[in-house]
Design a protein around this nucleic acid. Structure first.
Lengths: 296, 296
DNA sequence: CGTCATTACGGAATGCGTAATGATA
DNA sequence: TATCATTACGCATTCCGTAATGACG
């Protein structure tokens, strides 16, 4: 088999059609250049150049070998570059899971920040509920995941990605919509579209605890898992709902949002999780991009 | 820069995930294999493998480098193969010129024979008159050409590709069509659609000479360069014509062909010409394929 | 303590540069 | 005779294999 150095020698001579100039370009003297070409021809068992002491010409075989040699050299260069980028976490594929709710605000901002900071990174996004994401993380089918806390598994690490307050979503015609802000006490009598305890465990517990703290038993008229479904029902004036502030990006006609004032903040949190032993250098980059992300 | 041997070493270890087995596959011992991998990692300045004395695993960078390494190795193999094929005249591009008339019979057979004998050869075909083909040959823009003799230029070589008799093309309703064969003497009174002396010099001279030999002055009603145009006029019963036998492949309704019997054969010849100094190994193959071609 | 990767070391081969040779216009 | 590719030769480097070492279960 030939050698990269032989390919470089051949390409130089084939382009210059002159051993002296080619040798100069390669920072070497003619004799070793001559020999490298001879070795290459011997290895291929093909004459690539026709040379007299006055002229150098490519044979038909040489003409067909030149672009191949150039392509191999380019490929070697780009493989080197790519591998260094991957090792530095600046390139590669990041398999990222996210919860449906994070898609309204946190995920798009994270994706935008990643595209700016790490343009050579390809994202493979999958929407899944927290529990499934944890499984996929552990199985190595996800590299990182935007999930609801807490992340307790010993093989996983996590940092907070977002803490957003809950807001009240209510039909525009509801009298409470006239108020600038609302407290749990204002909502006691309102029909509440709430979260399903199994499919949306985190929000269910959050809302549940919040009302319990205020000493109020909400009047639950419906339980759903998906925020966009809940808001669709709010729009039908079936009732009001508590949703994370990011959901305001879902602009539905007839649905208005009002801040929820609490004695102490009870934000909905989102964390970024990954395997403790992950060898993806990308993870470290991802975490720092997340940390540098503007909180808005 | 790394080395093909290092790529092979890495690919083997990455595929086996075991230095011992990889070394066996490469017909070498572990130590040099270990060192080649180390050198590769040092050259790239990237860790490709994570190894303990019990296990070998690919890093993220290693996973991205493996397919690149395999691709480079495959490309080197295929470049070697291709170049050897080109050197042997079994691959490459052959720029072949041909005259319009040869397209009816000789060229298709030659193309078919080439496809069978040299499937990796690509043909670049161009239809041109003989004079232009000679020019293009000399300029290096054609590798070979099917032209009318004689080829006298000292820089060119040629072999006969085809010698086909002339036949009489005549309207089906012409009384002569009842005959099995015709001689020049039978054609004296017939209106003749003949060849233009400039654009179709070869056929013009051939037909001219043939009648002169028979002592007959033909009654020329039209002069054209292209055989298909001549036959189209024969079909209108404007007159008869003499065309090479291969033109019988052009089946026009209302036109019949009859052998032309001559005191001595005066075939229309076609020769294959190429530059004497052509370095295309393909030329030699082409000539032998032509020689082996069934004359039918 | 056995397996497996790595380091240590000696000998062979490869590859460079300088000098000499050969061929061509 | 000047230019340019090739051959000759000496020295440094590289690379293999054998032997020894080290780490992990």
């Amino acid at each position: 088999m030939f050698d990269f150095s032989q390919l470089r020698c051949f390409a130089a001579v084939a382009e210059e059609l002159h051993f002296g100039r080619a040798a100069a370009r390669l920072n070497m003297t003619q004799p070793p250049l001559s020999r490298q070409i001879q070795v290459l021809e011997r290895v291929l068992d093909v004459q690539l150049l026709e040379r007299t002491s006055r002229s150098v010409r490519l044979t038909a075989a040489g003409r067909s070998f030149l672009p191949e040699a150039q392509r191999i050299l380019r490929l070697a260069e780009s493989a080197t570059y790519l591998t260094r980028q991957v090792a530095a976490g600046r390139a590669g594929v990041l398999k990222l899971g996210f919860t449906a709710a994070s898609a309204y605000d946190c995920l798009p901002r994270l994706v935008a920040a990643l595209r700016r900071a790490l343009p050579e990174v390809t994202l493979a996004l999958r929407e899944m509920v927290t529990k499934d994401q944890i499984e996929e993380l552990l199985a190595g089918r996800l590299d990182a995941a935007l999930v609801r806390p807490p992340v307790t598994h010993p093989d996983l690490l996590a940092v907070r990605a977002l803490a957003e307050p809950l807001v009240v979503a209510l039909p525009a015609e509801n009298p409470l919509a006239a108020r600038d802000a609302l407290a749990p006490g204002d909502l006691g009598g309102e029909p509440l579209i709430a979260y399903a305890p199994n499919e949306a465990r985190y929000f269910h517990d959050l809302v549940q605890g919040l009302f319990a703290e205020a000493g109020i038993r909400p009047r639950i008229v419906q339980q759903l898992a998906q925020i966009h479904s809940i808001l669709a029902l709010v729009r039908t004036a079936l009732g009001i709902a508590l949703v994370p502030a990011g959901a305001e990006h879902l602009r539905l006609d007839g649905v208005v949002f009002r801040p929820l004032v609490l004695p102490e903040p009870r934000p909905a949190e989102l964390v970024l999780a990954w395997r403790r032993d992950a060898d993806e250098p990308l993870i470290a980059r991802l975490v720092s991009v997340l940390a540098a992300m503007p909180p808005a």
